[in-house]
């Protein structure tokens, strides 16, 4: 009973606008959001192991898209394809296509640095640089050659504000980022990622190392951030996916089993494996 992922998933489902979750300025026609990222027949091999198998999906603009699945199913591998962070891994092979607003990101004539400026990322383990809070936030600008103090200052304030961290750190911007708490560090990483004004924000299990209060703060934050950014969040916490996301994709052993609006996927899953997973019968 091999379901072709082409048949079950990948088909953009009819998206119903959920009341109360509409973006402030939807660039969509009649409630249907634009597509930010299109994934087409994506396969990823680590040497001989196929970690991602023929995944096809469409990620809508300015919505939160969650990727769920048991650990080892390839969520990180998939999300790292969006900013080509997998390029560094030796022996990794990618087939298929990913388009960011219609442009193939694997096109050899396109600059990977430019791509990474458009697609920011936050990691599972918070990883601030051993520098001051200020320098952490402006890192992306500095490597970009931006040195004007006024620009940097305003970016720091704005990014930290958006990451809901400004009030907590505004008096100690020049102290080491490593002295912040775990939750603050993760929000700092978010501020760092959005300081370069990306279009897409990738979050790979951003809350898995945090306590419930810090987690709640970050979930709240996602809710405001999606007004400006297309967000893809990896999580193996289904409650979290249900709470924060508009769309959800379920991955199992490298296959995209199902991709749908979150309320649909959690209430009326099409695939029995999805149902088994969300009802906690495996994974």
């Amino acid at each position: 009973m091999m379901n072709s992922p082409l048949l079950t998933a990948g088909r953009p489902s009819v998206v119903v606008r959920r009341p109360g979750t509409s973006p402030a300025a939807p660039s969509s026609v009649e409630g249907r959001p634009n597509i930010a990222i299109e994934v087409e027949q994506l396969s990823v091999w680590y040497g001989k192991i196929e970690a991602i198998k023929h995944v096809t999906m469409q990620i809508p603009e300015r919505r939160v898209t969650a990727l769920i699945g048991p650990s080892g199913c390839g969520k990180s591998t998939l999300i790292r394809c969006f900013n080509r962070l997998n390029d560094l891994i030796e022996g990794l092979r990618i087939e298929g296509r990913i388009r960011l607003y219609g442009q193939d990101i694997f096109d050899p004539s396109r600059d990977v640095i430019t791509l990474r400026k458009r697609v920011g990322m936050v990691f599972q383990k918070s990883n601030p640089f051993p520098k001051s809070i200020y320098e952490n936030v402006v890192y992306g600008l500095r490597v970009n050659g931006e040195g004007r103090r006024a620009v940097l200052d305003s970016t720091v304030e704005e990014s930290l504000n958006r990451a809901a961290l400004w009030d907590e750190v505004k008096d100690r911007l020049y102290t080491s980022a490593l002295r912040l708490s775990g939750g603050q560090q993760q929000r700092l990483c978010i501020a760092r990622a959005i300081a370069t004004e990306p279009e897409v924000l990738l979050l790979d299990e951003p809350c898995s190392a945090l306590d419930p209060i810090a987690t709640a703060k970050i979930e709240e934050l996602l809710y405001t951030l999606k007004e400006r950014y297309t967000i893809i969040i990896v999580t193996h916490n289904m409650q979290q996916a249900a709470r924060v996301s508009d769309f959800t994709g379920f991955l199992l052993m490298g296959e995209l089993i199902e991709f749908d609006a979150t309320d649909k996927l959690f209430t009326t899953p099409h695939d029995p494996r999805t149902e088994a997973y969300i009802t906690g019968r495996f994974g």
């Binding site: 990474r116 990883n127 640089f129 490597v143 760092r192």
Partner: peptide, 10 residues
Amino acid sequence: LRAASLACGA
């Protein structure tokens, strides 16, 4: 740390 730096566009 390397991944974070690269992801910032360095």
